[in-house]
Amino acid sequence: MDLVGAWRLIEWRITRPDGRASHPFGRDAIGLLCYTSDGHMSVTIARAGRPPLPEADPRKASAEALAGAFTSFFCYSGRYEIRDGHVAHDIEAALNPAFAGTTQIREMNFDDDRLVLAAPEGGRWHTLIWRRA
């Protein structure tokens, strides 16, 4: 199956070594992952039903409101390449500035119309399941 195109999030699951699983933005998280034919990618994931900021201008919102918006949203973009059954995301811009300039490598598998990306992190296993949009 071809990676190029848009993919909608089905599930983001984190599994701990003892087998317990969690969903960082809930079981109903929403997201969009896009790969272009010229090697660019972007991903956005959000908790479903995020409340709007109380101020129309985010620069006027309280630190608490901004923190809530930040911790319920995840995004980055950059370039990608396929490497022996993995996809490498070379991140250029991200909501979390620490991600910029890093390379995130994900195992890549196709299951019917689904794209499964997975990677270890700190003893836990992140699995993201996407369906073509």
Rank of each mutant, 00 (worst) to 15 (best):
M1F: 08
L3N: 05
G5I: 08
W7I: 03
R8N: 10
L9G: 05
L9T: 05
E11L: 04
E11I: 03
R13D: 00
I14E: 08
T15M: 02
R16A: 08
R16H: 03
R16N: 06
P17F: 03
P17E: 01
D18V: 05
R20A: 03
P24S: 03
F25E: 09
G26N: 07
R27Q: 06
R27A: 06
L32R: 07
L33H: 08
C34Q: 09
C34I: 09
C34E: 04
S37D: 09
S37H: 11
D38N: 12
M41L: 14
M41I: 13
M41C: 13
M41F: 14
S42N: 14
T44H: 15
T44V: 15
T44A: 14
I45H: 14
A46F: 14
R47P: 15
R47W: 14
P51V: 09
P52K: 14
L53Q: 12
E55I: 10
A56R: 06
D57Y: 00
P58L: 00
R59V: 10
K60M: 03
E64R: 00
A65P: 00
L66C: 12
L66A: 10
A67N: 13
A67R: 14
A69N: 12
A69P: 08
F70R: 14
S72P: 10
S72D: 11
F74Q: 14
C75V: 11
R79C: 13
Y80V: 07
E81W: 12
I82T: 12
D84H: 06
D84S: 08
G85N: 07
H86W: 06
H89P: 06
I91D: 07
E92K: 10
E92S: 10
A94Q: 13
A94R: 12
L95P: 10
F99Y: 15
T102A: 12
T103Q: 14
T103G: 11
Q104Y: 07
Q104S: 13
Q104N: 11
I105L: 13
I105K: 10
M108P: 03
N109S: 08
D111Y: 04
D112R: 02
D112M: 01
R114D: 00
L115D: 00
L115I: 07
A118E: 00
A118W: 01
A118K: 05
A119S: 07
A119E: 04
P120W: 01
G122K: 03
G122Q: 03
G122F: 01
R124N: 05
R124Y: 01
W125D: 03
L128T: 03
I129R: 07
W130C: 06
W130H: 04
A133I: 09
